[in-house]
């Protein structure tokens, strides 16, 4: 993927740099720093994040707040991710940067969030209203003895409003917690970036349409998937179920629907792969 035009021509004063590599290496939880930086960001600001792995769960979290991302891999353990608002409307209203011609492309998105309304923003000229920022709670379970991590997490989740995310930080994959999360209707991604530091991103399961292609003949798989994708409203997504890692599919998406799709692994094998494929909003 080539670098988006608006990032190429970006006024450096709009960039907020945040480097969380040291936090990650020493096992500290950088999520609150990231969200703090995101809230400190000007409306037309771009958050440029450095991390030691590709922080894919963050794409979903910030994506729901209207951020697109562009990712550079500088080294295996050095990633630079640009979070920016793809609609460009904010940018125009702000510093008057040379990002043009994007407003018309923005599709209408459901009802504006209460925050946007109370801020009194002129919706029609602003393009996409930003949804309410996803609230993040971090629960560091590393100093707790089993089964306390599970107990605290379940208690926190039962009290958590829909749409919020709980980051569960552990020194191992909490095997006994996962089935209980599924039973209670939560979805999660497990992120194990180094030994003894595991992050779980837990939120209420959204009733995603599921496309199970395991039983389809191989030559019908990709056409079916693209047909399903093309029916999606922008911002909507579906859950793909497959019996292998659909890497070729992802390349085909990159080639045929560049910048128009989102791709988030929910489960990676060894028997089943679940990928949330969405239409960029």
């Amino acid at each position: 993927m080539t670098k988006p035009l608006e990032l190429e021509t970006l006024d450096p004063s709009r960039i907020l740099d945040l480097d969380v590599r040291e936090d990650l290496r020493s096992g500290r939880e950088p999520f609150q720093r990231i969200m703090h930086a995101r809230h400190a960001l000007a409306d037309d600001g771009v958050l440029r994040l450095r991390a030691i792995f590709e922080p894919r769960p963050l794409y979903g979290v910030l994506g729901r707040e209207g951020f697109s991302h562009w990712t550079e891999r500088l080294a295996d353990d050095d990633w630079r991710i640009w979070f920016y608002r793809a609609d460009g409307a904010e940018a125009e209203a702000g510093a008057g940067a040379s990002v043009t011609g994007q407003v018309e492309a923005v599709a209408p998105v459901p009802t504006p969030g209460p925050r946007a309304r109370s801020a009194g923003r002129a919706l029609p000229t602003c393009g996409t209203p930003r949804p309410e920022p996803a609230d993040i709670t971090v629960l560091d379970a590393r100093e707790l003895e089993p089964p306390e991590p599970m107990q605290r997490t379940l208690e926190a989740l039962e009290a958590m409003p829909r749409g919020h995310t709980l980051v569960h930080l552990n020194s191992r994959v909490p095997r006994f917690l996962l089935p209980e999360l599924e039973r209670r209707g939560f979805q999660y991604t497990v992120h194990e970036e180094q030994p003894e530091v595991v992050r779980l991103f837990i939120r209420h399961a959204e009733a995603l349409p599921v496309l199970d292609v395991r039983a389809l003949p191989p030559r019908e798989k990709h056409p079916t998937i693209f047909a399903t994708f093309d029916t999606l409203e922008p911002g909507a997504s579906f859950l793909l179920l497959n019996d292998h890692d659909p890497v070729p599919l992802r390349y085909q998406f990159m080639a045929e629907r560049p910048n128009a799709f989102t791709w988030e692994y929910v489960e990676q094998g060894p028997e089943i792969w679940r990928v949330e494929i969405g239409r960029a909003g």
């Binding site: 792995f53 994959v173 095997r175 006994f176 089935p179 497990v190 194990e192 990676q268 094998g269 060894p270």
Partner: peptide, 12 residues
Amino acid sequence: SSPFTALGGAEP
């Protein structure tokens, strides 16, 4: 290598 953990096949 993916930082995501293989999750299947490890149910209690």
